[in-house]
Design a protein around this nucleic acid. Structure first.
Length: 358
RNA sequence: UGGGCCAUCGCCAAGCGGUAAGGCACAGGACUUUGACUCCUGCAGUCGUUGGUUCGAAUCCAACUGGCCCAG
């Protein structure tokens, strides 16, 4: 009896090849594109390689046809709006910097898609992520780096649950990007040369501030740039325009580069400091998802932590604080530890756990 | 309005008679399946104004305009 797997197809190369590989491996493959937001300008989004819009459906459908697999479009607009877009806007309004891809993975690409796939009798769901699901000796599931560390996407997957991982396949993680493109070509997939997607899919023009203004009623307005001693340095456009570590767009001519070191929503202030001021060797995080273990159990642990998607990772020690949050002490100070971003802990090449930076 | 000082790109600033450094900011690009960071490229046909000296002036001289300081 063939195992049935639903592949989330974005219309891009990676997920197309994922479907292709699974079919070769003998699975009964069903292609599904999740419709998650309404594009205003499909042409533009397609040029930018937008990941989940209407034009994506055409590409995905064509690939499914080429592979000879059934193909469906599922509507997840409500889930996406509630779990990703609303969260995204709310975080910015509170002076934090969210990572929508992580929320999308946990709540839409997995939770929603998995639930519905189970309903139609699937055994697994699969995606085109550059990561590999692995079962540890302790019986728990985690994700480990893809064979190409450069394309690794485990950071964005740290929040998946054991139940989700148990039913997840990521065939693309065994190959390099070059190999994936070759496989696509060899199988005559029309998307072989399609440009990689970039930027947040629901904000193709990359103008976050405008998006937030359109989505929220009470967006905090102009306020003061202040230095660490409280001196006013200038006027900012509203805290939603800034993030910790930011240099460009401040319009502050101090004779030397200056950076955002802190955002204070209570006072509507954006704190400015030098390049050195943006380094810190400590962070606290909450909403922790343990992956390789079921908890820290009052022990501290040496791990490698990534504080942003493109971070190489830095050695640190983590421990649970009495209030339930987790403290992370780095051996060397890290740049721009930013509230709202995820910190992901690694042990060897797999995800140990992760949380949201406070 | 007695004396002194200063006026060079949006900001700071080099230049001291030989044909406008640099930094910050800004713009564009690269990188990047989050925000950022980083990197690359661009950015004063002109030196407050008007005259003068000189082969040649941002650089010297004069007046004017504006600003600062000290006197009163």
């Amino acid at each position: 009896m063939k195992k049935k797997v639903v592949v989330g197809m974005s219309g891009g190369v990676d997920s197309s090849v994922a479907a292709c590989l699974l079919k070769e491996q003998g699975y009964e493959v069903i292609g599904v594109t999740m419709q998650i937001w309404q594009e205003e300008n499909p042409d533009e989004a397609s040029e930018n390689g937008g990941c989940c819009g209407l034009s994506a459906v055409d590409d995905a459908r064509r690939v499914a046809w080429t592979l000879g697999i059934p193909y469906y479009v599922m509507n997840f607009r409500r889930e996406f709006k509630e779990s990703v877009m609303d969260y995204f806007v709310a975080e910015y309004l509170h002076g934090r910097t969210p990572n929508p891809c992580i929320a999308c993975n946990r709540y839409v690409k997995w939770e929603a898609l998995l639930t519905r796939s189970m309903e139609i009798g699937a055994d697994y769901i699969a995606t085109g992520h550059y990561a590999r699901v692995m079962e540890l000796p302790n019986g728990r599931f985690t994700v480990r780096n893809s064979v190409t560390a450069a394309k690794d996407q485990t950071y964005a997957l740290y929040n998946l649950t054991q139940e989700q991982l148990k039913r997840t396949l990521m065939p693309v993680g065994d190959y390099t990007k070059e190999e994936i493109r070759r496989i696509a070509e060899r199988n005559g997939l029309a998307v072989a040369k399609k440009k990689d997607s970039m930027e947040i899919c629901f904000i193709p023009d990359n103008d976050y501030a405008s998006f937030i203004e359109k989505s929220a009623d009470n967006v905090p307005g102009a306020g003061n740039f202040v230095d660490m001693d409280g001196n006013v340095l200038g006027c900012h456009k509203g805290i939603t325009h800034y993030t910790v570590g930011q240099r460009k767009g401040l319009n502050l001519s101090m004779g030397r580069p200056v950076f955002v070191t802190e955002i204070r929503p209570e006072t509507n202030e954006v704190v400015i400091g030098s390049g050195d001021d943006v380094f810190s060797d400590r962070l606290c995080c909450s909403h922790v998802n343990w992956m390789a273990v079921d908890g820290l159990h009052k022990e501290s642990r040496r791990v490698t932590a990534k504080i942003r998607y493109s971070h190489r990772g830095a050695p640190c020690v983590i421990r649970e604080l009495p209030d339930g949050t987790v403290e992370c002490l780095f051996e060397t100070p890290q740049r721009a530890i930013t509230p709202g971003q995820a910190v992901v802990f690694y042990e060897e090449d797999h995800v140990f756990g992760g949380g949201t930076i406070l």
